[in-house]
Design a binder for these strands. Sequence first.
DNA 1: CCATTAAAGGAACTGGAGTCCCGTTATGAG
DNA 2: CTCATAACGGGACTCCAGTTCCTTTAATGG
Lengths: 214, 214
Amino acid sequence: MSAGEPEPEQGPEPGTVRPGGRTARVRAAVLQAAGDVLAEQGFAHLDLGDVARRAQVGRTTVYRRWGTVTALVADLLQDMAEQSLPRTETGSLLGDLRANARLVQRTLTDARQGPLFKAVIAAATWDARTAEALHRFYDTRVAEWAPCVRQAADRGEVPEDTDAHEVIRAVSAPLYYRLLTSDVPLDRAAADRAAEAAAAAARAGAYVRHHKRT
Amino acid sequence: MSAGEPEPEQGPEPGTVRPGGRTARVRAAVLQAAGDVLAEQGFAHLDLGDVARRAQVGRTTVYRRWGTVTALVADLLQDMAEQSLPRTETGSLLGDLRANARLVQRTLTDARQGPLFKAVIAAATWDARTAEALHRFYDTRVAEWAPCVRQAADRGEVPEDTDAHEVIRAVSAPLYYRLLTSDVPLDRAAADRAAEAAAAAARAGAYVRHHKRT
DNA sequence: CCATTAAAGGAACTGGAGTCCCGTTATGAG
DNA sequence: CTCATAACGGGACTCCAGTTCCTTTAATGG
């Protein structure tokens, strides 16, 4: 096999060589417009042509830079991931988990972020790249909060070999489940209940690693 | 207001007047084909024309009877809902919840049902009708299992005023959360952990109604 | 076994999402 | 400031999902 043949030679991704000035302005306008459509009309009406018109940007540009709705949604998630709120420390496991639960609840009921998360989850079920982006996003978020479980273990609130990540996931899980499978709106009470349940289960040792019980 | 004007007069839904013979055969073939596509290629490739070809059915027929991918997926869910497995009773809350968790886990990892559930959840995020169908489906399923929590309360395993539906949802939540936000496959250990966590939290009183704690 | 007509199905048609081509703008390097 | 070219943008074009129209098949009632 001879290498060095005139391959299709796909250069660097558009927008990476001259990311300043206009390019950045275009990206911001498009993401803004896409977020607007999601918040106003939902994922179903997210059309690249429509987004281009709203963003006052050439249709060609949107197709060249993003190409598909799922890619656009994934980029929107990427953009949101950069504005991560810092973890608050309250001194108790229940307090920390409640802070986390309320943060998630506020995010999911937010007029802009809520629809976005629904859209990303939907997009992830039929596009592998988006799914990967979504998984990384949650891995990161969970890792950010996991230390509070570690601290609780040091304080003796939960068993030493508790799986911290699993506890953090246990806080979010009921909120997302309700968001997706029910029409009852997510309220603060639901968040507090999720936090309390996770804390209680953790204390009872339901999240210890290498489970040996029957 | 005078009634009886010559309204657009949209007759009964197609397939409701002569549901026997060919009509039933067509419905079965289409749902079968749709399920095949979902299992093999996922929601993204679910195209009505393709489904029609696989089902050896006229394209027009599929468009007339279902019209959209979401409607077809909703009907698929309806069809699946009819084959509901009976609840098993083990005599203990943990045993019952574990049975439920394992049932959910088996369903979500099933080659046909797993992709279907992902698809339905995705479809529900952008189509109100599908969302309603999905919500009803889960309300029904949760209600089927709730009695086991009631029985546990009678046995004194959990507080008297425990919200039974909330406990059942707490069992499924971590499984769905992991299905959607992670690439780690759902195994039986995850199911057992979900059941144990829900049981522990319920015992600790995290699901009592009219919460008054701080 | 007919007659009625609900429902299926073939085929041509249409509109708009996505692509292509090429001229225009303005970024970033020297 | 000047130049090379990355990235944008308008407009024509393509292609196929979804619709329409009409013919054929067969489910149901008598």
